[in-house]
Design a protein around this nucleic acid. Structure first.
Length: 481
RNA sequence: GCCCCUGUCGUCUAGCCUGGUCCAGGACACCGCCCUUUCAAGGCGGCAGCACGGGUUCAAAUCCCGUCGGGGGCGCCA
């Protein structure tokens, strides 16, 4: 039975790297029909906060990564860690240390360059009873250090393969701090043992920590889990992810109009290849996931790919699926009306289907819908200059308006037919009318196909906006002065 | 400084384990063409890579060694 966990520390956001670690744990659990546990590593009281915990959980919820057990809070299990540390001291596998960081630093400085000494010098390993009592009476804080044995640690990483480290490169690390709080190494191993974690899937930054933790498992007489270390995600500058490039909370991506499924596909396809490049359903990704397939090299975060994936997802979604998302976005822009969900639903669906083809994020919907919903639109000055200055429009537009007026069914194909006929009769290119209409009705030089746009706007609105030709011209002139 | 990990087009990735089918495949981005009412989408085409140097071999992106580059760790942070 596979048991995995995601164990963030609430000292920061759920950033893209953590999200990917979480996702891969989740994928593995689901793929192997195992159990996925959420654990909050909040033993660093000074830097942890409840807000961060909530933010992380909100991020996981948004991504749809559900957990089967937890969240387990380490801060509520402190006595257990103390007990476990004590257990090792009694077995002679760990020892109390009274040294202050300053003293250690002082001694290390002295021996620097002498060769072997680079870590803790084991000053407290064999304290005489007298010295020990003196330190105690001085009221010194007492930490517990692990006694690293000689030898080497060898383990097989599911992604990297065999990794060997000589124990002489591991110092007697601290298990329990002077204030009685556990360090990461202790708490992580104690909790993973108790939760019976079978696979530890985490970032590459923990590769060097793994031997220490294996040592702890051995000391506790437990079998270490399998380890899999994911290469760290890099920014576009090939440096560690920064605030500027994806180093922020995943919720930022939600707010930018990205969809969870696109984001998860992005995370997945950043580290392995499920096959062809497209959007996969969660079920497909679960089915295809395998730790051995995860690449060893560090991927560079590429926003282009995310956008492309997101755009493909949106284009492929139905109006039905898109509506709740678009609704939220429009509510934020004060453009939503309840009738869109009722009598105007057919119209609204049509609008969504028109806009979705060219949308890479949900965010563009309100702007695209704007011209259909408000009376006063804004006009792009350059577009006006380019498409509304032709004097022939002064006579053509009224003629076209009359044509439109006479139509029974104001639908896209009918509109196109009428417009092209008029253009032909007047000996002008249809494009002249099309561009002018786009500017007048939408206000922008860019929009979905104009005939569908006009149908969506409706006859009345179309005619009203066509009649504003001279107003729009002078509006822009005024601004230009 | 010491230790560990890593290195295929600008970016992601397939291939590497089990050498030949790879003068390296796909995708994003970019460029061009087609379509066309604009922008997209779509279709077609293009640009571009096995970090470098040795070795093993009839044959190396694939195996071995070294160099260089990138990343991480070396905390009474996680």
């Amino acid at each position: 039975m596979v048991r995995v966990r995601f164990a963030p520390s609430p000292t920061g956001f759920l950033h893209i790297g953590a999200a990917r670690t979480c996702f891969f744990n989740w994928l593995y659990a689901r793929n192997r029909e195992g159990t996925f546990i959420l654990r909050i590593e909040d033993t660093d009281m000074a830097r942890s906060s409840e807000e961060m915990t909530e933010g992380i959980i909100e991020g996981l919820r948004w991504l749809g990564l559900d957990w089967d057990e937890g969240p387990i809070f380490q801060s509520r299990r402190l006595p257990l860690y103390r007990q476990k540390a004590q257990e090792l001291v009694e077995k002679g596998l760990a020892y109390s240390c009274y040294c202050t960081p300053e003293e250690i630093q002082e001694r290390t400085k002295k021996t620097a360059g002498a060769g072997d000494f680079w870590g803790y010098d084991r000053f407290c390993l064999e304290l005489s009873e007298k010295q020990r009592l003196r330190f105690e009476s001085e009221g010194r804080a007492k930490a517990v250090r692990f006694l690293v044995p000689e030898g080497e640690i060898r383990y097989t990483d599911s992604i990297h393969g065999d990794i060997t480290v000589d124990n002489k490169n591991i110092e007697d690390f601290v298990l329990l701090r002077g204030d009685g709080l556990p360090t990461y190494h202790l708490s992580v191993v104690v909790d993973d043992m108790e939760s019976q974690i079978t696979h530890v899937i985490r970032g590459d930054d923990h590769i060097s920590n793994t031997p220490k933790q294996i040592l702890l498992y051995q000391a506790f007489g437990a079998k270490p889990p399998k380890f899999a270390h994911l290469a760290l995600i890099l920014g576009p500058d090939k440096k560690k992810l920064s605030k500027r490039h994806g180093g922020t909370s995943v919720l930022e991506f939600r707010d930018q109009g990205y969809l969870p499924l696109a984001f998860l596909n992005f995370l997945a396809q950043m580290s392995w290849s499920p096959g062809e490049e497209r959007i996969y359903t969660l079920e497909e990704l679960v089915g295809k996931f395998a730790l051995k397939k995860v690449s060893k090299g560090s991927p560079v975060f590429d926003l282009n790919k995310l956008e492309w994936l997101n755009g493909r997802l949106i284009s492929g979604m139905s109006a039905e699926e898109l509506t709740p998302l678009v609704r939220k976005e429009m509510q934020a822009s004060n453009l939503w009306q309840e009738t869109f969900a009722e009598e105007q639903k057919p119209w609204f669906d049509k609008m969504i289907n028109l806009v979705k083809e060219r949308s890479r994020t949900i965010r563009v919907f309100p702007k695209a819908a704007m011209p259909f919903l408000v009376d006063e639109i804004t006009y792009d000055p350059a577009g006006v200059e380019k498409h509304l200055r032709d004097e022939r429009l002064d006579t053509l537009l009224p003629l076209l308006a009359k044509d439109f007026q006479a139509m029974d069914e104001f639908s896209a194909p009918e509109i196109e037919q009428v417009l092209r006929k008029r253009a032909e009769e007047e000996g002008v290119k249809a494009a002249l009318l099309i561009h002018a209409l786009r500017m007048l009705v939408v206000g922008e030089p860019v929009s979905p196909g104009i005939f569908a746009v006009l149908e969506l706007a409706g006859k009345e609105k179309t005619l009203e906006r066509m009649s504003r030709l001279s107003d729009v011209r002078s509006l822009v002139e005024k601004k230009g002065e």
